[in-house]
Simulated scan of single mutants.
Amino acid sequence: MSNTVIVDRDQQLMVVEPRGLDKMWSFTSRLEIPLAHVRGATQDDGAMAAHKGIRGPGLGLPKKFSGTWTLEGEKHFWNVSGPTELVVIELVDEHYARLFLTVADARALVDEINDAVG
């Protein structure tokens, strides 16, 4: 299942909502991040193969990662199902340093985020 990501330029806010059981597995129902705290986004389908760090809390199964992972002192939020359409969003001054998300159209979301914060 993918995530719903809304980039609201009027309110200068990005909203991430895991869908379905991902809310339970990730222990997260919604993330609201000011656009001023978003550095940018990239599509990185290879991120699934990278070392994720220590999980907690969350779910870690082959091709499914949901929740908080800590790597080299940074907290990352993962809600990824499968290796494709994976977006990495870099943040500053937030609880998470990066968000790793599966979405319906990664390229379109990356362009939308980078255009909004650019």
Rank of each mutant, 00 (worst) to 15 (best):
L109H: 02
T28A: 05
M48P: 00
M1I: 12
D10V: 02
V5E: 00
M48Y: 11
L99D: 02
R39Y: 05
H37C: 10
A50Q: 08
T4Q: 09
T68K: 14
R39M: 05
G58R: 03
S2A: 15
T70M: 13
F77A: 07
I33F: 10
S26M: 08
A104Y: 01
W25T: 06
M14Q: 08
D105F: 13
V117R: 05
W69E: 02
A116D: 00
L13Y: 01
G67C: 02
T102P: 03
V80G: 07
S29W: 10
N79E: 09
G56R: 01
G40A: 10
V16Y: 07
L109S: 07
L59W: 05
G40C: 06
E17C: 12
G53D: 03
V92Q: 14
V103S: 05
G60Q: 10
P34C: 02
I33C: 07
G73Q: 04
G73Y: 01
V5F: 07
L101G: 01
I54C: 03
V80L: 12
K64V: 08
D115I: 11
G53L: 03
Q43S: 08
D111H: 13
I6N: 11
W78M: 10
L35M: 07
E17H: 08
G67K: 05
E90W: 08
R98G: 00
V15K: 06
E17K: 15
G56I: 05
D93G: 07
S81R: 12
S66F: 01
T28W: 01
G40S: 09
L21R: 06
I33L: 12
A116G: 07
L86W: 04
L86Y: 04
K52N: 03
G58C: 02
G20S: 01
V87M: 08
G53E: 05
V87S: 03
T84M: 14
E74K: 15
D45C: 13
S81Y: 09
D105R: 15
T70A: 12
G53T: 04
A36Q: 13
N3Y: 06
G20R: 02
L71I: 12
A116W: 02
E90Q: 14
S2N: 15
A49G: 03
K75D: 12
V88I: 10
I33D: 08
A49N: 09
V103R: 08
T84Y: 13
L59R: 13
R19C: 05
D10Y: 04
A50E: 04
G118M: 06
K75Q: 14
M1R: 15
W69N: 10
T102E: 12
W78E: 00
V5S: 04
A106P: 00
W78G: 00
E74A: 14
V92K: 15
D115M: 12
A41C: 08
Y96R: 04
D105C: 10
V92A: 15
S2K: 15
N3H: 11
G20C: 02
Q11H: 09
P83Y: 13
E72A: 15
G73W: 04
H95D: 07
T4L: 14
D93Y: 05
I113T: 05
G53F: 11
D93E: 11
L101Q: 02
A50I: 00
T102K: 15
L13M: 14
A104P: 00
V88C: 08
V15A: 03
W78A: 01
